[in-house]
């Protein structure tokens, strides 16, 4: 047993060091966001909230934020809706070329984003279409869809098939069975799919960089400002806000995921209706 505990404590120290490595860059964010020095370097100067104030009055940033939110909300809803179709098809039905079709739909997960962005750009330019946030939404929907499908497939496949049959057997229509039984039970999956897609889209840089035309999004705005040293403290403040936001969103997602598990296995009564 002593060998095991020795091994355990060695690994534990490693794990803590690893977490430090993971969190080191993020830990620096608030440090520089509240540092009054204009250069991002040690030693620190004084405490200030100026950068946050500067951030809140920046109109380009506000515009970028608006664009990013529009894109992320649209892309996450579209990806999740398409994901529901795909997840249901793949968990419930056998059909010809199933493997090939699902493979194609899941490809963006393993395709470098630069290729998605470039090939879409070539087609859009070739077709003479105007680049706008709409084209970014199209690209983001495409790359979010596989993640949505992965999450939703888990939700759909953990459902007992006979639940829907039971509802149908008890006189409901197919749609009624779906709405009254399946939908409430996969709702936690739908919510996590929306959250994950939203987060992916909000953070996506390459597609937005090439397909947005002149419209800024949060990541492309950040990228453009990183070239100007005097803008960087404000970007640190923005990063701090984004980190806090991400953690809040993740926590909400985690809550719904656990509630979904509780609902199926029965640790929490929750209760729709």
């Amino acid at each position: 047993m002593s060998q095991r505990s020795f091994e355990g404590s060695g690994l534990r120290i490693y794990a803590i060091l690893y977490l430090l490595f993971l969190y080191a860059p993020i830990a620096l964010l608030p440090v520089f966001a509240f540092n009054s020095g204009t250069i991002i370097a040690f030693p620190l100067q004084g405490f200030t909230t100026d950068w946050f104030a500067q951030m809140s009055t920046n109109s380009t940033l506000r515009r970028a934020l608006g664009n990013s939110l529009t894109i992320a909300v649209s892309a996450s809803i579209l990806a999740t809706c398409l994901g529901i179709f795909a997840a249901r098809a793949t968990t419930r039905f056998e059909f010809p070329f199933k493997g090939g079709i699902m493979g194609l739909i899941m490809v963006p997960m393993v395709l470098p984003e630069i290729i998605v962005a470039m090939s879409l750009l070539v087609v859009l330019l070739g077709a003479g279409l105007q680049l706008s946030i709409l084209t970014v939404i199209a690209g983001h929907t495409l790359i979010c869809m596989p993640y949505a499908i992965a999450i939703l497939s888990t939700a759909f496949s953990s459902l007992d098939k006979s639940l829907e049959e039971a509802a149908y057997d008890l006189g409901e229509t197919r749609w009624g069975a779906f709405r009254l039984v399946t939908l409430p039970l996969v709702m936690p999956g739908i919510i996590s799919s929306l959250l994950i897609s939203f987060t992916i889209s909000l953070d996506e840089f390459i597609i937005a960089f090439f397909l947005a035309g002149n419209e800024p999004t949060l990541p492309t705005y950040i990228f453009s400002q990183l070239r100007f040293p005097k803008q960087i403290p404000m970007i640190m403040a923005l990063g701090t806000v984004l980190v806090v936001l991400s953690i809040v969103l993740l926590a909400i997602g985690e809550y719904f995921r656990r509630r979904g598990i509780a609902r199926i296995s029965g640790k929490d009564s929750g209760g729709f209706q």
Partner: peptide, 13 residues
């Protein structure tokens, strides 16, 4: 006809 399923298919929600 109505059915009693092997897994019972009790609606968990």
């Amino acid at each position: 006809t109505n059915m009693v399923f092997q897994s019972y298919a009790i609606f968990p929600h």
